Amino acid sequence: MRDILTDLEAGKFLSDPDPVRRAQIQMKRPLPKRFYTAVTVAEGPDGVFAVHLDGKPVRTPGKALLALPTGRAAQLVADEFAAQAETIDPVSMPVMRLVNTALDGVTLDPQAVLEDILRFASSDMLCYRADGPVALVERENAAWDGLLDWARASLGARFVLAEGVVHVEQPREAIAAIGIHLSQRAEPLRLAALHLMTSITGSAVLALAVDFQERDLDSAWVAAHVDEDWNVEQWGADAEAVARMAGRKRDFTAAFNVLDALRG
């Protein structure tokens, strides 16, 4: 299932979980010419919304109709198609790639995707704290304690903290509570967005906090990168790390926008 959940690119394009490597692959392959003029969203009789190029519906690499449950979600994909210039670059279309993953991958086995998110929850990033320096410890506490307090109060999930990277066993009840809330969000596109956000941040709690509107885009991104930001402040960042971070931010933003659009 992890293989399915790596970006399902359109057509013959290869995928790689590293955005820098993915961009390098794309640079080596000729991109297809833009073949359409008009991009529209059409509501079908079954209440789903399809993206049309010059009046013809778009299909996923797996040949499924690219149809979404809300008009806003479909418009996100339509906007990416409309933004293409002379060629079509799938790397610049993170929402479309996420939708392809949902329709061609998650629909095959949503339970496996849910269980993968639970595996992240069992070693959630928010639970592993630095043992120094004091300024970093305080920064982690300020960014993460509120999220764990929210998980305990709103989700019924009480997590155990640890210092360093030594694994700590989380209470079975906490993981079960996360599982209950995920099972209530098992529609493929939402689950795909939650999985992407979880895999980028290392935190299922943070992904659920976004879906529950407990955190907005900017505060969630900052919370997910406390340690990285600290290291950059101390040592600086190289160009490759900056490019990698930009790619992750683009995909994270796409997942956030999809979750928001699914609210109607």
Rank of each mutant, 00 (worst) to 15 (best):
S183V: 07
F159S: 05
E173W: 04
A153N: 11
E214R: 11
L189Y: 09
I178L: 10
A223R: 01
V242G: 01
L161H: 14
A162S: 15
A142G: 06
D149W: 06
V165S: 11
A224Y: 03
W230M: 01
R190H: 09
D145Y: 01
A177K: 00
D229L: 10
A237P: 01
W230A: 08
L148C: 08
I180A: 12
V160G: 03
R172D: 15
G146D: 10
E240L: 14
L155G: 11
A192T: 07
L189C: 10
A237F: 00
R248N: 12
T198F: 03
G247D: 01
A177L: 03
R152W: 03
R152C: 14
V222A: 15
W150M: 08
P171W: 00
G146L: 05
E233V: 02
A204V: 04
T198A: 04
L189V: 08
G156H: 04
A209M: 04
G247Y: 01
V242A: 13
G202D: 08
G202V: 00
I175A: 06
I175C: 06
A186F: 02
A162D: 09
S154V: 13
W144H: 14
W235V: 07
W230I: 06
D216W: 02
E163N: 11
W144Q: 10
L147S: 12
D145R: 06
A223C: 07
L191C: 11
W150R: 10
M197T: 15
L161F: 15
L206M: 13
D145A: 12
V222T: 14
L155F: 12
L189D: 12
A193E: 08
N231S: 11
I178N: 06
G202Q: 01
Q234P: 07
